[in-house]
């Protein structure tokens, strides 16, 4: 479903991703790990279409089509979703209103669905009226990003360190959600949480180092 071929991504005149090949299929979890600064987030953001990243070589193929030059909102439309490792804050933007808008539905049924998802990721209902990522704790931000992954129902879900800085019980909750998502989507899971790596040891693991894939296998 998603295929990255010989990807070279540059930020501000510096090559960060140096020729990465990668494939993620439906009903598959691919775990990406590697030391800080090895280029995991940059890889994920390049797949989503971050405009500050320049792809100098290689391509990103999604559902058989080359999306390397599409804007992020187009990629989203086609079925890619990315959680942000450090999501930005939005003054006054209400979480509930934002999510309904993004979903493109504002009926009661949708609201009910959203509330149920919040319950599952451990966010109280009142978070619907909080500001988008503003004033949220680290763990709450991770939960809110995960909630969106569940709510928006995309085919290709890229999760960038949603399990860092959260407690053990939450990691287990996240993994159980992940296994559910796997039933309908392809997942690229970036982590270096030892507990998650243990819980996901049966999945394919890719190890990155200095912008390259140095290990690919189970």
């Amino acid at each position: 479903m998603l295929r990255v071929e010989d990807l070279h991504a540059w930020i501000e005149g510096k090559e960060i991703v140096k020729g990465v090949d990668l494939e993620v299929n439906k009903r598959e979890i691919v775990v990406v790990t590697g030391p800080n600064g090895s280029g995991k987030s940059t890889l994920a953001r390049t797949i989503m279409g971050d405009p500050k990243v320049e792809v100098k070589e290689g391509s990103i193929i999604f559902k058989g089509e080359d999306i390397t030059d599409l804007p992020p909102e187009e990629r989203f439309e086609r079925g890619i979703f990315l959680t942000f490792q450090v999501p930005p804050e939005f003054e006054g933007v209400k979480i509930g209103e934002f999510l309904m808008k993004v979903k493109g539905r504002e009926d009661l049924e949708t609201l009910k669905e959203l509330k149920e998802i919040f319950r599952r990721v451990g966010l109280k209902e009142e978070f619907l009226f909080r500001e988008l990522h503003r004033g949220l704790s680290g763990g709450e931000r991770k939960r809110l990003e995960l909630a969106q992954a569940l709510f928006l129902g995309k085919d290709m879900i890229i999760l960038d360190e949603i399990d860092s800085g959260v407690d053990i019980e939450s990691v287990e909750m996240m993994i159980s959600i992940l296994k559910d998502l796997k039933k309908r989507a392809g997942i690229l899971y970036i982590t270096h949480n030892p507990l998650t790596l243990k819980l996901l040891e049966d999945e394919r693991i890719i190890r990155m180092k200095e912008g390259r894939v140095v290990e690919n296998g189970r």
Partner: peptide
């Protein structure tokens, strides 16, 4: 910020829709 715009875009909102959303937030009070 560019990061805010990228976030909004990555959630399917194009530039205009993102700006409207952010404007409404800014003016909410």
């Amino acid at each position: 910020t560019e990061e805010q715009m990228f976030y909004m875009n990555s959630r399917g909102l194009d530039e205009d829709a993102a700006k409207a959303m952010i404007a409404l937030g800014f003016l909410s009070d």
